[in-house]
Amino acid sequence: MTPDPRKVAILISGRGSNMRELVRQADGYEVVLVASNRPAAAGLIWAEQRGITTWSEDSRGQDRAAYDQRLGDRLKESGAGTIALAGFMRILGPEFIRRFAGRMLNIHPSLLPKYKGLDTHQRCLDAGDKEHGCSVHVVTEELDAGEVVAQARVDVSPLDTVSSLEAKVLEREHELYPQALARFVAR
């Protein structure tokens, strides 16, 4: 039986601001699980307070393949047909990605394919870019290289700092990700 793509599991590592917006703005999908590789992630408490099932296990010091297997098994048990990475600060192994191929989205703070990986805001400022933004993309084995399904742009001011640029982009992420996820599960 094929999992229902409208049942969504969200993976987080911290406060879960994008996860909260995915839950608040859910349209055409239901969040069935919030999972984290950090048991102290504040987003887990927020999800639990709203009656969303949560799962967490600290990934530090764990064998990647074994951890990914346990996480994947929990996602399967939840009935999730779509997985949304929302500030999940852990690279998933190739076996995990193949297991859920074509069913995972991620939000990334740059206009991909520009600035894959970390420190995107600083890299944008260092390059003197006039425009920055965020991208929702399909997760593949190559980091931040999957098909881009949506983007949002922000203007970069000469007065911007990493913090101000991060805040501008995060505001756009909160608008973009729920809309992109709704379209993705409906396809």
Rank of each mutant, 00 (worst) to 15 (best):
R74D: 07
C134P: 02
Y29E: 01
F100Y: 00
S56W: 06
L75E: 06
S17Q: 08
E175Q: 15
R187M: 15
G72S: 07
P3Q: 11
G16T: 12
F184W: 03
F88R: 03
G133W: 04
G61N: 09
K114N: 11
E30P: 14
A182F: 03
A65V: 13
D58K: 05
E57R: 05
V23D: 06
T82A: 14
P178T: 03
P113L: 02
K114L: 12
K130E: 15
A180G: 09
S59D: 13
E95K: 14
G128D: 08
I52C: 00
Y67R: 03
R70E: 10
E77C: 11
I91A: 13
G61P: 00
A9N: 02
A9S: 07
R153Y: 12
H108W: 04
S56E: 07
P5H: 00
R70F: 02
Q122K: 13
F100W: 00
K168W: 04
A84C: 15
V169G: 04
R103Q: 14
A101H: 09
R99N: 01
E95H: 13
G102S: 10
E171S: 14
L111K: 02
K116F: 05
L71F: 09
P158F: 00
G133V: 09
G28Y: 00
T54P: 05
R64I: 13
E95Y: 07
T82N: 13
Q25S: 15
E57N: 10
L22K: 07
R50W: 04
R172G: 11
E173V: 04
G87H: 08
R50F: 04
V138C: 12
V138P: 10
I45K: 14
D4T: 01
S13P: 01
T53L: 01
V154N: 00
A26K: 06
A9V: 02
Q49W: 09
T140E: 08
S36Q: 05
V34S: 04
V185H: 08
K130Q: 15
G146A: 03
A180Y: 07
P5W: 05
G51C: 04
R6V: 08
T82D: 12
E57H: 09
T120R: 08
I45F: 13
R98W: 02
E95A: 14
Q25R: 14
T82I: 12
Q25G: 14
L85R: 02
Y29V: 09
Q62D: 05
L44K: 00
G102I: 03
A40T: 15
F184E: 01
A101Q: 10
A66K: 09
D126V: 08
A47N: 00
K114G: 08
A167T: 10
A47W: 01
S135A: 04
L165E: 08
G133L: 05
C134T: 12
P178V: 07
A80P: 10
V31S: 05
Q122F: 11
V23Y: 00
V162A: 15
E30G: 15
I45G: 15
P3L: 10
V23M: 11
L75W: 01
A152S: 13
F88P: 09
D4C: 10
V8K: 03
T120C: 14
Y67C: 11
A150C: 02
T53I: 10
G61F: 06
G14D: 05
H174A: 03
A47I: 06
Q179K: 14
R6E: 09
G81P: 02
G133H: 04
Y67D: 12
Y29F: 06
K130G: 15
A150S: 01
S36C: 07
L118P: 09
S17N: 01
L92S: 01
P178W: 05
L176V: 08
